[in-house]
Design a protein around this nucleic acid. Sequence first.
RNA 1: GUGGGCGUGGUGUAGUGGUUAACACGACCGGCUGUGACCCGGUAGAUCGAGGGUUCGAUCCCCUCCGCCCACCCCA
Length: 423
Amino acid sequence: MIYKAQRGTFDILPENETIWERVRKICLDTVKLYGYNYIETPIFEDSEVFKRTVGQNTDIVEKEMYTFLDKGGQSISLRPENTAGVCRAFIERGLHNRTLPIRLFYYGTMFRYERPQSGRFRQFHQFGIECIGDNDYEIDYEIIEIGWKIITNLGIKNSKLNINSLGDNNDRLEYIKVLKQYFENYKNDLPKVDQLRLENAPLRLLDSKEKNTIEIAKNAPKTLDYLSEEAKSHHTNLIQKLEMLNKIDENFKFVENHKLVRGLDYYNRTVFEFTTDSSGPQGVILGGGRYDPLIEILGGPVTPAVGFAMGIERIINEINNKEDDFSNQIDVVIVITENIFREESQSLANNLRKNKIKTIIAPNKSVKAQMRYANNVNSKSVIFIGENELKNNSITLKLLNSSEDQKTFSNDNIEKIKQLLRI
RNA sequence: GUGGGCGUGGUGUAGUGGUUAACACGACCGGCUGUGACCCGGUAGAUCGAGGGUUCGAUCCCCUCCGCCCACCCCA
């Protein structure tokens, strides 16, 4: 084999269509009920759009972006996520002049240069929603509730919400300072990876998987203790709402996870993740949070916003994707006894298709082979055209999944065909 | 970037240091000169991931590379 799909990419084949379409439909149907509207942004943007928002020092920007110079010498990046693009469009297209908050959703391909493994690809699909222009905790709740609704509608069990608050910018800076001081005391006990983190991304020390670090992190200061009054009440109000949701729907489970920090720089206040226990290390199927500073960072007016992104591949992995089947079942395969009847079969085929009957003309082979073909493509029926039929202006129809006799009738009796096929 | 497992027809698997690499499914053709799916028979399809080494001889042993999968990292 000479040509192969690039590492971390894959093909969606006909038998996968059903599940992919279903997931997409459930996502869209659910958020539309909440008044969200479709937005589609380009797959590539000025690299700065991501550097400024996702964060210069994040892994995503530092080593995972597909960045290149285009023929005009401009630095372009394939989008590693879609929030930045949506915000860019929000500013550029003047959406901030509309009635706020504005509710948007997207569905599309993202790109990250990573080593692939289960639930992780270089080209992958994300569905996400953004509610821009309202800083009320009620919106945080709405976003989480929608996430939960989608997960439920998809039939995914055993998911759990992890939630935390990072506070506002000043809270966060203060917290990082305190956290750094705390870990400095144990610097020599930290493994090398984490000594580096201490310098570059101290927040990440909290969810380190190194034994020593976990031990030390147990007594580390918590973000919640460094929140401003406002951020704190925002958080406690949200938690109350979640407790109410839990009372209404006992399947909804959540924990406050003080170690949840998330890797994108633009988050403030609420951050959350839905995880499942069955999907292993890539257990996060949906994650998001509030990103109030982002739009200003991109040069827009100060505008608060919340949103989440969902990994479609992980979702599909989760709902046993045993559903492979051909939803596009063929209704009729036309079999002709001699090639000279081909003209006839073509005009019949077009007439059938005009009547929304899915039709294929069998390949130019023996009758036996044509029948096998009809069977292999899982057609509902076969229509024969031969000398006798031509003479009488009739067709012979045989249902393939039953042992019923075949029926011969007038070749313009579409209603009869539909009736026999139960269309 | 680091570590572990694995690379044999289209797919899933056997197998052995020695002349035609096996089996099942799938595909194709025929048994049925106008009828599939069942049954029976046949045909095609693999330089055993690539390169090098050891050997009289390598698909098998050794090395390198490449690819896939998994884990770390990070994230959806």
